[in-house]
Design a protein around this nucleic acid. Sequence first.
DNA 1: CGGTATTTTGAGTATCGTCAAGGCCAGTGG
DNA 2: CCACTGGCCTTGACGATACTCAAAATACCG
Lengths: 259, 259
Amino acid sequence: MTKEPTRRASGACGLPAIPQLADLPPGILQDLEAACRVIRVEAGQTVFHAGDTPEFVGCVREGCLRMQKTLADGRQHIVGLLVEGDMFGRVHEAPLHFEIEAATDAVVCAFRHRAFEDLLLRSPELERVVILNIINELDRARDWMIILSNQKITARLAGFLLVLCTRFAEIDHVVAMENGQIDIRIPINRADLAHLLGARPESISRGFQALAKAGRIDLLRPNLIRVLDFDGLAADAGDGEIASRVNLQHLISHARRRA
Amino acid sequence: MTKEPTRRASGACGLPAIPQLADLPPGILQDLEAACRVIRVEAGQTVFHAGDTPEFVGCVREGCLRMQKTLADGRQHIVGLLVEGDMFGRVHEAPLHFEIEAATDAVVCAFRHRAFEDLLLRSPELERVVILNIINELDRARDWMIILSNQKITARLAGFLLVLCTRFAEIDHVVAMENGQIDIRIPINRADLAHLLGARPESISRGFQALAKAGRIDLLRPNLIRVLDFDGLAADAGDGEIASRVNLQHLISHARRRA
DNA sequence: CGGTATTTTGAGTATCGTCAAGGCCAGTGG
DNA sequence: CCACTGGCCTTGACGATACTCAAAATACCG
């Protein structure tokens, strides 16, 4: 069920590099690192099955995981993406409602459930991080709902791109800066994107073409998109809030630092 | 911004009747009741505006509130419903991302933010209740996502009805038993339902008619629906999990107790 | 360079949104 | 008690949009 983990020296897991965890007390961070196993998963591998009670708490270090639900008729729906810094594996013992699969090759920090719970009891700071993580996911889920409520594919795509910019701006290799333009590397393929946005791959493709024809984006490659008209994209998405949450300057500074 | 509250004797707020809170230590419960104001809101009234940092933590006692987002073009999307026992008003100080409005006449328990935070620090049990509430909401948001991902209106409606049965089974006047049949009283009107399911009221109406013609349901009144074919409804919804989560026996026992 | 998977395009059909009109119900006032 | 009014729900006709199926083009990988 779970990929046989590739163990490494715990010192190598680099937890302090994760922004959310950086501010924890040194002692707690040390114990966290001690309880951490590094697991490498290949794209397509399942980390947790639906209905499992996960035997560890995970924290994504690299790559992208998808939370998905397999319907009775075999179709799959993605309910969220997990990227660097996101935690998963129900902290408060309960069976998972979704599978967790690697969307790309990924590196995950795994904390044994028991050890993590102990740490949680000892550190209100860690507990706070966990709660903020859950609240964060709740907000994201609601963002997806708003996006999904949009009937036009182009609007959903525009919303998706904006969310990528806001949520994933700080994640390497997702948003980059090129000649003063913003490039987005979409971390999942068309089929997954279709599942995420409640559409078919063909419609996704047509939606991208429509956005390109409208001058909003430039399709450099299927998974590499250059944003030409940010405001236009925000207008297409229809939602003022998501758009306003995109701090363009902030975005650019991040991208530039990386360039 | 916030409705002028109707104050009552704190002893009348009846918090112990809320299942989630019933197991709290008596002392905490007492302090909670002491910090509680009872607020009555009429259908359509706004409890919190988007962007507000709510000045109290709320707990629904009666009725139904909707969490909604108003888009740039004036359209509204509902991202969730709050019913008896649900808590709202961000506990961890942060501006709200959506408005909270009364969908029906409602009664809300309001706890001053400061007092609630103090209690939270004193009672890990209360904190646990709050966390479980958030996790619960996350699950619900994901359920909505799955439902919204469905392209056919009838499927979304079927999913909605099933969620109503699972999530709201214990809420008075939502699910009832009549002559061995299950009746669902939909707590919101067509327009709100349309906003919730990402459709137009006309499409909702047509969807209900289609379900009725297929023999799944009987439309007793616009907001009162008799379920004739539970399994068929589950098949329409397309999602195995939501369907399986409906424990029909459990549902019936609840309904019968009330009858 | 070839083979495979992914993505894109095209044509036809089903579904939903839009606009407009009609029906139902409740509350109001004669 | 009944007619009237307003809000909500439903129905109908038409246009827009996305889905289905099939095929071609492109990207990816060895």
